[in-house]
């Protein structure tokens, strides 16, 4: 595969157990070394193209995740790293876990695993690269703008209402 860009990563530890975070870091170190492709782990949301989010969302960090996401420039891709970020994982039943990353922001690539292996993560980033290119193309044609977290929340609400309506309809029928 030809890499047309060197995307920069931003990593935020949602409410993970650190297992996945440490693997995200490991992916940039000599054994796996994504940095050789110019993929750099940055700390600044405004420099980042790919958002790696580990761990589930809880009541304290949901706004942080939303803010980071909204600050990132278009085009951007969100990667949910680890099963916790995908749907809550082993902590799904915890009282303070609202769910996976997609409960607050739209997620493009899901990378399961507990902990996620760096190889899987790199595969996820490669998938993200393709999406990034697609989004950039569409943007050039003026056809695309990513959802803000507020719009996403609204969309989720509507989806929830639709599902509810379908449910009641089913019951009535």
């Amino acid at each position: 595969m030809r890499i047309s860009k060197s995307p920069w990563l931003l990593h935020y530890d949602g409410s993970s157990c650190n297992g996945c975070d440490i693997e995200v870091l490991a992916a940039t170190t000599p054994r796996f070394d994504v940095e050789r492709f110019g993929i750099i782990n940055t700390g600044n949301p405004k420099h980042a193209d790919i958002f790696l989010c580990t761990g589930g969302v809880n009541s304290q960090n949901q706004d942080v995740i939303r803010q980071i996401y909204d600050q990132m420039p278009d085009p951007k891709v969100v990667l949910a790293c680890g099963i916790c970020a995908c749907d809550g994982g082993i902590f799904k039943d915890c009282y303070n876990i609202l769910g996976g990353t997609d409960t607050v922001i739209p997620v493009d690539v899901y990378v399961p695993g507990c902990a996620v292996r760096p190889e899987a993560l790199i595969d996820g980033v490669v998938k993200a690269l393709k999406l990034l290119d697609e989004k950039a193309d569409k943007m050039k044609r003026g056809e695309y703008r990513s959802m803000t977290s507020a719009e996403y929340a609204e969309a989720l609400k509507i989806k929830g209402q639709l599902a509810e309506a379908a449910d009641t309809e089913e019951k009535d029928a």
């Binding site: 949602g14 304290q60 942080v64």
Partner: peptide, 11 residues
């Protein structure tokens, strides 16, 4: 602190 609280002990 409190950004990573999951409520694990309650599990």
């Amino acid at each position: 602190i409190g950004f990573v609280h999951r409520g694990l002990e309650h599990l």
